[in-house]
Structures are given as C-alpha cells and as structure tokens.
Design a protein around this nucleic acid. Structure first.
Length: 220
DNA sequence: AACTCGGGGCA
DNA sequence: TGCCCAGAGTT
C-alpha cells in the first residue's frame, strides 16, 4: 500500500501529465446535472453532451419526464445506448423527486442513492459538483488506477477504494483527484494495454513493475 | 458474484 | 466490421 506521501507525489506527477481539465457534463442546474450523470452510466461524457442540449430544451423539470411517454423519452436518448433502462429510471427518479423531495434534487448522498439509476458514483458526482459536498466519485478508471498503483488493496470494493482515497488525499484535492485519475486511467493506465513502459509512475507502481518483469520474461 | 442492458467510436 | 468502452439493477 502506498503511503499518503507517495499518493500525493503520484497525483502531482499525473497533474503534470494532463494540464487541462476533464470533459464535463453540460448542465445549468442540479436537476440537469442529475439527469446528465444518470445518462452517463456506461458511456462517455462527450456522448451524453450530444443529447442533453436538445433534451433540456424539451424537459425542464421532473414533471416533464413524468408526463412523457416512456417510448418517446427512449427515442430522445437512444443514441447513448442502454436507453430503455435509463428512460425508465429517469421517469421513476422524477416521480420520486416530486413525491419525496418537493420536486427538488436532494443534497445528501444517502437520499440521492435512494433514487432510481443513482448509485454510489452518481450520487458522489452530484453531491460534490452540484452541492459542494466533499466526495470522491469512484468509477472504473479511479478503481483500476488505485489498485494498480497500490493506493488501495486489490480486493477492496468500491466503498473501500473510496474510503482509502479519502484517507490518503487532502480534502481540498478530492475533486481534482477524481478528474486526474479518470484522465490518467482513460488515456494512459488503460484497462487493456496500459502504457507502463513510458509511464512516469513506473518506479512507484506495483502492478507496472510486475507487468514489465512479465514482458521481459516473455521476450527473452 | 455474475449477468444484463446497447448504443457510438475507432482500428 | 468486430472489438472496446463504461454503472446500476437484478438474480
């Protein structure tokens, strides 16, 4: 397991690799953010950003999603994939907002996670981006990178990865950490074909060094 | 713990 | 044209 100091050193190096910020979901209020993040499950932010401008021109509040036919909403979001589940969840979620939260987006992670289509990652993104609640949203990139580097343990579940990151990263850097690790995971420490041989973190990376040793054996 | 949902993007 | 991407719900 990497120490607090080593983790912050790693984050600093990653920061140097990617000066610009992560692509973010287009939204202008907490409700639009919530919808956009629910839509973004299993697809990229840029893909979601292609449908949300039209979507938010047509739908402005929970009641608009409740009123529309499921099939029509499915067509409005069809291009992002998994559209039946997502349309169903958005209609259900919108009804919950009206019935339980006076039509507003709740601010706590527990309340957010009670909504259809909102899991731990989505709840953390909404809580932190819309309401400034300190949180680290752990997606597959953050999880994979944290495990390879040895920030957390291999067997940790998402909650444990999140808790370990919160312990090892200063609170004021949580939001930035999320973006940096996603960027690093998507473009460099990829799930398949990670770029270990040119990685500036190789010296401190347990998995990277292991992979390099395996390559040496393979290629004589 | 494994399975399902489903398009777009890119080699 | 087939592989790769990327969470939440269900069983």
């Amino acid at each position: 397991m990497l120490t607090k100091t080593a983790v912050n050193e790693a984050l600093h190096i990653i920061e140097g690799m990617y000066p610009e910020a992560e692509c973010e979901l287009i939204h202008s209020n907490p409700f639009e953010l919530l919808i956009a993040v629910v839509l973004s499950a299993q697809c990229t932010d840029s893909l979601v950003n292609k449908v949300t401008p039209n979507l938010f021109t047509k739908y402005h509040a929970p009641r608009d999603f409740v009123a529309v036919e499921q099939e029509e909403l499915e067509q409005d979001i069809r291009s992002i994939g998994l559209y039946r589940n997502k349309a169903k969840n958005i209609k259900k979620l919108s009804m919950s907002l009206i019935e339980q939260f006076d039509g507003e987006v709740p601010q706590t992670r527990e309340e957010l996670m009670s909504l259809a289509g909102v899991g731990r990652k989505t709840a953390n993104v909404v809580a932190s981006v819309a309401f400034g609640t300190p949180a680290i949203a752990v997606d597959t990139h953050v999880e994979r990178v944290s495990k390879r580097l040895g920030i957390c343990r291999w067997k940790d579940n998402v909650r444990e990865v999140e808790e370990t990151l919160m312990k090892k990263v200063p609170k004021e850097k949580w939001a930035d950490t999320h973006h940096r690790l996603i960027f690093f995971g998507r473009y460099h420490c990829k799930a398949k074909d990670p770029q270990c041989s040119i990685c500036p973190l190789l010296d401190m990376c347990r998995e990277g060094k292991k992979r390099m040793r395996q390559q040496e054996v393979k290629h004589g």
